[in-house]
């Protein structure tokens, strides 16, 4: 089972997916239709690009702050949260999913992204 299907099968996960850094393709599994998954990929990719820029800049302005290259990010909404590690995203129900388990799975199984995001 690949990481996307594995995440989608976890408790409380609404959907999981993967986007290319170039922005030209995406895959997904779970309770989103194709159009919503495309939008989710666009949103997650944009934030990932911004986070990489911010952490690279923090590193260059502040010696080695332990923040770069970024591994991922989480946005916590009222009932839904988004977790991203490298180019894999996961939409979760904040009330029924275990954030720790999901992020651990992602950090263990999604390889680090370093250098150019391509």
């Amino acid at each position: 089972m690949n990481i996307i299907n594995e995440l989608a099968a976890m408790s409380g996960v609404i959907a999981a997916g993967e986007y290319s850094y170039r922005g030209d393709r995406f895959t997904y599994a779970g309770q989103l239709d194709e159009e919503k998954a495309r939008m989710a990929s666009i949103m997650c990719r944009a934030t990932t690009m911004a986070v990489h820029m911010q952490t690279d800049m923090m590193k260059s302005l502040n010696d080695d702050c332990g923040c770069a290259p970024a591994r991922g990010w989480i946005v916590k909404g009222g009932n839904v949260s988004v977790c991203v590690v490298a180019n894999v995203f996961c939409f979760i129900d904040s009330n029924s999913a275990s954030l720790n388990e999901i992020v651990k799975t992602m950090r263990d199984k999604v390889p680090n992204q370093d250098g150019q995001l391509i």
Binding site: I42, M43, R45, A46, T47, M49, A50, H52, M53, D56, M57
Partner: peptide
């Protein structure tokens, strides 16, 4: 370059 890409991402959204 990075800022351009970020602005582009936000404008696309």
């Amino acid at each position: 370059h990075d800022y351009k890409r970020m602005v582009q991402g936000n404008a696309d959204q």
